[in-house]
């Protein structure tokens, strides 16, 4: 890096070059991040005025309305609960299962390479196609899963309206879809980190007589801490960002099956309603999410750094 330090004094040419190169990305950031986020805050204090076709100041009106939405019916309360279960599901079910799968593969189970490729398939297929495949697999009329249940004499486990329209099953289907489609991506990330663990460390552990379980707990997990940490951090942000899978799997049934998420509620207000009047309340919910989300995400980061510190090796 010593060579680079030589160029610490920037010539005019270099300055021009840097400015030109960064112009587009920085401008993009200013418009699509800074401006839209500030404007979201502004929008949350406005309402649409049909007479002038403009957004006008509305004080805390949207926040009051938002509070009413919470008390009006249980849609939003369920949305909060569901979003929270996503966090738990991701960090305490999907990531641990992926970790165990990846560890077993790392321990040279036959055909690991083949399985890894197959498990990765859902990650490259569009959510839009994959949700359809998943839905038709469980479709009450034509799917093969109900067919199998039927032949096993479990036809009482097939809800009349199908799994995606039944309040008892719908949210579980969303969670199950997340598990079914999400493991492979995590495995690839975790396996990548495992293969970077130096052989000497594993060898030393073996000489100390570590069992595989102890190796996983005392050697592997600490050494892939930063990767696990990243996955858990992503698993935390889904609480505020997960909606597309729910929207595509449940469509109009999200409300009747108590399966909204916070993000889905926002997107519905912005776009699905087709009504410009509901943009501001969507923005208000976005602001509330950010106000709660930022400390949650950074707090989680702190917790992760504490319990899964990343080691240099």
């Amino acid at each position: 890096m010593a060579v680079k330090a030589k160029r610490s004094k920037l010539s005019v040419g270099a300055t021009v070059f840097i400015l030109v190169m960064l112009a587009v990305p920085v401008l993009h950031f200013i418009v699509f991040w800074l401006y839209v986020n500030f404007d979201t805050v502004a929008l949350s204090f406005e309402r649409y005025d049909g007479d002038t076709n403009n957004f006008v100041f509305n004080g805390f009106g949207n926040y009051v309305d938002l509070f009413r939405e919470f008390t009006k019916d249980d849609t939003l309360l369920y949305a909060v609960r569901n979003s929270f279960t996503l966090l738990l599901w991701n960090n305490f079910v999907i990531v641990p299962i992926s970790l165990v799968f990846a560890f077993v593969m790392y321990k040279k189970v036959p055909f690991s390479g083949f399985y890894k490729v197959v498990f990765f398939l859902p990650s490259i297929i569009s959510v839009s196609a994959l949700t359809l495949v998943f839905m038709y697999m469980f479709d009450a009329n034509s799917g093969f899963v109900p067919g199998i249940l039927d032949s096993l004499g479990l036809s009482d486990k097939i809800p009349f309206d199908g799994y995606f329209a039944d309040a008892k099953y719908a949210w579980w289907m969303v969670l199950f879809y997340g598990l079914w489609s999400g493991i492979g991506y995590n495995i690839v990330l975790i396996s990548g980190a495992m293969t970077r663990i130096p052989e000497e460390i594993v060898e030393a552990g073996k000489l100390d007589g570590l069992t595989p379980l102890k190796e996983l707990w005392h050697v592997t997990i600490p050494l892939i801490g930063s990767t696990l940490g990243t996955l858990m951090l992503l698993g935390t942000t889904v609480m505020f960002t997960y909606f597309l899978q729910v929207k595509l799997l449940l469509g109009g049934n999200a409300a009747t099956t108590h399966s909204y998420t916070i993000a889905l509620w926002i997107v519905d207000n912005v776009r699905e309603s087709g009504n410009i009047n509901t943009l501001p309340i969507g923005a208000a919910m976005g602001v509330v999410c950010a106000v709660i989300g930022i400390p949650v995400v950074f707090g989680t980061r702190k917790l992760i750094d504490r319990f899964l510190p990343s080691y240099e090796y």
Binding site: W33, Y35, V36, N37, D39, T40, A42, L43, S44, T237, M239, F240, T241, F243, I262, A263, I266, V267, N269, V270, R271, L279, P280, G282, A283, M285, G286, V287, C289, A290, G293, I294, V297
Partner: peptide, 9 residues
């Protein structure tokens, strides 16, 4: 930072 709300703006 979760900024899903910015879809509105």
């Amino acid at each position: 930072i979760p900024t899903i709300g910015s879809v509105a703006a």
